[in-house]
Nucleic acid binder design. Sequence first.
DNA 1: CGGTCTCTTGACGGAGTTCAAAGCTAGTGG
DNA 2: CCACTAGCTTTGAACTCCGTCAAGAGACCG
Lengths: 196, 196
Amino acid sequence: MFDLLYKKITEKITLTEDEFELCKPLFSQRKLRKRQFILQEGDVSRYNIFVGKGLLRSYTIDEKGGEHILQFAFEGWWTADLYSFFTDEPSLFNIEALEDSELLMITRPSWESLLNKLPAIERYFRILIQNSLIATQRRLIGSLSETAEQKYLKFVKAYPESIQRVPQHMIASYLGITRETLSRLRRDIASGKSFP
Amino acid sequence: MFDLLYKKITEKITLTEDEFELCKPLFSQRKLRKRQFILQEGDVSRYNIFVGKGLLRSYTIDEKGGEHILQFAFEGWWTADLYSFFTDEPSLFNIEALEDSELLMITRPSWESLLNKLPAIERYFRILIQNSLIATQRRLIGSLSETAEQKYLKFVKAYPESIQRVPQHMIASYLGITRETLSRLRRDIASGKSFP
DNA sequence: CGGTCTCTTGACGGAGTTCAAAGCTAGTGG
DNA sequence: CCACTAGCTTTGAACTCCGTCAAGAGACCG
């Protein structure tokens, strides 16, 4: 699992194996079964989580009980409620395993000591967060300007694997539409109704 | 104008005045008249821009000609098309002054040399981007789960100054609704129709 | 098998859009 | 200082996409 983390880090920055050895002891490992939660609304998001294996989702629940998925986290991705992680305020998000998963987790104190020890790691996270911001901005603009169908087609193009691994009603909730709408829309696409 | 930048930086990190003196020569200054553009769709976003005075907006235009505002940038804020800035790809965004404005601008090569020279500055940007990501995630979740009225009320609460400084049709376009809907919705709020 | 989770379909309703027009405001130039 | 125009806001009426509610049919798992 650490191999994957090291690979991911060195895709963005240069870090010797010796330096990486300094990082390892700061992480704790954890396995999660499908449908298990690693964070529930109201708890403090005490860990920044690296997904070594499996798949997680983070989502909120609105007043009417509707779920809204912020992120799917596949192998090699990070996830957390950043706001809660940095402020120690209770989280608004739930984070749940969609498959049996294996995680590397780091607390904020450890994380911060790591950034102080290795500025290259701070750069790594700066780049990660930067890319995440760019992607989130794109998704926001899309959610303001695109139809349900455009959003879905873009999603399929961007994350083809997830079609296999994520139930459709969760894709709908990621896109901000209902499962019924997604179902109808897929039928229309399949029958060539959308571009005849 | 540099005073404001120094103040903003030292709100997040510690930086001596001497170190700040090293930063100054890397910035170019520019004034912008109301309605002038500093970036147009198709151009490369060559600068990361600090707003010393005034107010900018960044926005995209969709196929049907609709504008979608990503960000208002007030005094003390940074703006750019991050994707274009980091990749040198043509920008999808336009950035325009809503008031006469004064800017500090830094190119990517200068910006990167600065981060290498002063790791504290990399931390400054890491924190900025981090906060921006958190805010954008919130806005995204809101755009998926809230009604037009809820979005507007939250916006007014979060940015009361902008009600004075930003035309209403631009607030509508930031919220992802039409000017007509915003107009009606404001009328209903004013007449107490929404919570009687 | 029985229950839970998932996807699909239909009928209806509503929040918000679109189109069209008119009133208001502010900046500009004669 | 007034007139004129361009930009901004408001209103009305018709429409549309999508959500809501309700129901049924597979599919998977203990």
